[in-house]
């Protein structure tokens, strides 16, 4: 790489990252997803210790109605949409714990950006938590890497 120092994860990561406490409920999670506009929330404990990742996809999937529910409610697409909304509302009090991926892939802030890029591509993930000694220090996304790397070449 060149000498401009953009070769470590900590140089390119996003520090201001969407975090959620491990004891939050799904409503809080949904609001956070909406506000922060990220695909995955970083879950932390009361001491900012890294607990895992909560993905918007998993939240949505919980609210999707199954065929029995749709048929029970009338069978139309409209019915299905209504259930989706109702179900979503009903889920709001559910703790996020069961949806948290509690041992995700992580990257070290001192790791080389190429390492992060490799794993993001190989495992088809978009966002990697950056963790140092058990503490969440940021996230690194494909976009972060593109911005940093292409700019330095």
């Amino acid at each position: 790489m060149n000498g401009r120092g953009q070769t470590q994860v900590k140089d390119v990561m996003t520090v201001r990252t969407a975090r959620i406490r491990h004891n939050s409920n799904l409503q809080h999670a949904a609001e956070l997803v909406a506000m922060s506009n990220v695909s995955d929330l970083m879950v932390v404990d009361d001491d900012d210790g890294f607990c895992g990742v909560l993905s918007e996809g998993d939240i949505l999937r919980t609210a999707l109605p199954d065929i029995d529910q749709i048929l029970d409610e009338g069978g139309s697409l409209g019915d299905a949409f209504r259930i989706f909304v109702d179900k979503g509302r009903a889920l709001s009090d559910l703790p996020i714990t069961s949806l948290v991926i509690d041992e995700p892939l992580i990257v070290d802030p001192d790791d080389h950006v190429a390492r992060a890029a490799t794993v993001l591509l190989d495992r088809q993930i978009r966002l990697l938590p950056v963790v140092k000694d058990g503490t969440l220090v940021g996230t690194v996304s494909r976009a972060d890497l593109c911005r940093a790397i292409v700019g330095t070449l």
Binding site: P104, L105, R115, T118
Partner: peptide, 16 residues
Amino acid sequence: FGQEWGTVVAPDGLRS
């Protein structure tokens, strides 16, 4: 080993 991973030079380039 948890989710520990590394990067290696494979015949088809970088791989995790």
